[in-house]
């Protein structure tokens, strides 16, 4: 198994932390992992993205220019990464704020209305976990139990009480993903 993933959106949407939780989940499942962020001024507003690779074998380049999965959370990122999804790969996006939806016919396109759902759940912060759940429903590259372990490892202990809420958001994302 090897999955090369780009997660891209606005700074503050939880793009980097979603990638980190996914990578930690991979470690909990005995996978090799890399997490490579864009860094610098774009982290302080503007677009942010992170490349996460999960693999059963040693990972060569942490930098790739074609992806098995693109998880897209704003229009700018869709413009930038739609063409970078491998043929037969997955493009998962949140339609919130998307004015020109993806047009690729040679990839699987899935939608998750995570921003809307997070608002319904009354907690904008679980947005990225809804997206993560949607991804794991379509591509179960790590088991949910390992994601929970990943959350325990990546979150400081003082916020461990919030893990059940995050788990709920992941489950909700699994339910509402379309396509």
């Amino acid at each position: 198994m090897k999955e090369e993933i780009i997660i891209a959106g606005f700074g503050g949407q939880g793009v980097l932390s979603m990638g980190k939780i996914l990578a930690y989940s991979g470690i909990m499942q005995n996978q090799e992992v890399t997490w490579m962020p864009s860094y610098g001024p774009e982290m302080r507003g503007g677009t942010a993205n992170v490349t996460v690779i999960l693999s059963d074998d040693r990972i060569s380049s942490p930098i790739v220019h074609e992806f098995d999965t693109a998880i897209i959370l704003n229009q700018q990122s869709l413009d930038k990464f739609e063409a970078a999804v491998k043929r037969g790969g997955l493009l998962l996006y949140d339609p919130n704020g998307i004015t020109a939806p993806p047009a690729r016919a040679d990839v699987r396109v899935c939608r998750v209305a995570a921003a809307e759902e997070a608002a319904k759940m009354g907690n904008a912060k679980v947005f990225n976990m809804i997206v993560l759940g949607a991804f794991l429903k379509v591509k179960p590259v790590v088991k949910l139990e390992n994601v929970v372990k990943g959350l325990q490892k990546s979150l400081p202990e003082r916020v461990h009480s919030l893990i059940p809420m995050n788990e709920q958001a992941i489950l909700r994302g699994m339910e509402i993903v379309e396509g």
């Binding site: 980190k20 090799e32 997490w35 490579m36 990972i59 930098i63």
Partner: peptide, 10 residues
């Protein structure tokens, strides 16, 4: 280099 410094791995 900036990649090795900034990326996370196991």
């Amino acid at each position: 280099d900036g990649v090795i410094g900034q990326m996370m791995e196991k």
